[in-house]
């Protein structure tokens, strides 16, 4: 799969080994659509984060992560399964990811983010789950039950893996909590909420498991969905805030060379190739709308192309 990446820097210029935020804006989907079915890639990559996706094109079934910018936060039911109850990504951004969490679903940290702490991410309910908990549906109950006093909950439990082993620590985040004795305190999350994962320490990957008080013989009745955005991992930065990309890099990963394409025809200009530690390896002038960079002198690994405020990762293999 050809991917190109971008990320926003959250720390000051010149800082190496910083926290990096992944917000999926580079997917740049047409308005009010979603991206499912990662094909042979087995998932979607956003910078140093890999989000597994399984899509069965024969049975039209999927699990894992999908990328979305669906804005419908009022239509209940399965037909609106790709929507976040906020109607947008964190802080009004367009894109976010939707998780259909049948069983455990994972998120994998790659390259320099792997084996390092993850700060956290923003999480909210999907519209499907939110309206189901708020109003009930043909299968699932309205939280609180007939009296409003049922101690219902909808919980996402996040566990960490490090070097192949699952850690004993976990982070619980209640997407809905009706266990309060005072019903006025009962809530269903309908805003982006920061979930701090720093307590998990160094991690290679995360697993997400949903559980609900509304569970029957056939499993959980509450729709097993939640949405995430703005994941902050360890990473490498050394530049200013990054704009929405104007540069396309392909193929990626690449063995011999990559093409740099100025999507809006801008140029000529200068670009730099950085290694994972932020060191400038080369500075060149881009002379055409599409230019080639030969990778002969680079070892296998992740690198970045920096052009003005745009920072684009690529992988040499």
């Amino acid at each position: 799969m050809k991917c190109f990446f971008t990320f926003f820097l959250v720390l000051n210029v010149g800082i190496i080994h910083a926290q990096v935020t992944w917000n999926f804006e580079e997917f740049n989907l047409p308005e009010n659509t979603y991206l499912n079915d990662a094909g042979n890639e087995g998932g979607f990559t956003n910078g140093l984060v890999f989000l597994p996706n399984y899509y069965d094109s024969e049975f039209f079934y999927w699990t894992g992560w999908a990328v979305s910018n669906v804005t419908d936060k009022t239509t209940p039911g399965f037909g609106n399964q790709y929507s976040a109850i906020t109607g947008s990504g964190y802080n009004g951004s367009k894109h976010y990811v939707v998780n259909s969490a049948f069983g455990n679903n994972n998120m994998v940290l790659r390259n320099e983010a792997a084996g390092k702490p993850i700060s956290g991410m923003y999480i909210t309910n999907s519209t499907y789950a939110y309206l189901s908990m708020k109003d009930g549906d043909g299968f699932a109950k309205k939280f609180g039950g007939v009296s409003g006093n049922d101690p219902d909950y909808f919980l996402v439990t996040i566990k960490a893996y490090s070097e192949g082993n699952i850690k004993s620590d976990s982070v619980n985040f209640y997407l809905a909590d009706y266990r309060f004795s005072d019903n006025n305190q009962d809530y269903i999350v309908n805003t982006w909420e920061w979930v701090d994962l720093s307590s998990l320490g160094n991690v290679d990957s995360l697993s997400f498991a949903l559980s609900s008080s509304d569970t029957g013989q056939f499993g959980m009745n509450t729709p097993a969905y939640f949405c995430a955005d703005y994941m902050v991992t360890s990473g490498t930065v050394n530049n200013n805030d990054i704009d929405v990309p104007k540069v396309l890099v392909f193929p990626n990963p690449a063995r011999d060379y990559i093409n740099i394409n100025l999507q809006n025809g801008e140029g000529p200009g200068f670009y730099q190739v950085l290694d994972g530690a932020g060191n400038i390896l080369m500075t060149k002038e881009i002379r055409y709308v599409t230019d080639k960079i030969y990778l002969d002198n680079l070892q296998n690994g992740q690198y970045f192309i920096q052009m003005e405020k745009t920072l684009i990762p690529f992988v040499k293999f």
Partner: peptide, 13 residues
Amino acid sequence: QIPPTNVQSKSGA
């Protein structure tokens, strides 16, 4: 019409 369950606010089915 398919009525709502007793733990469902409304149904239009």
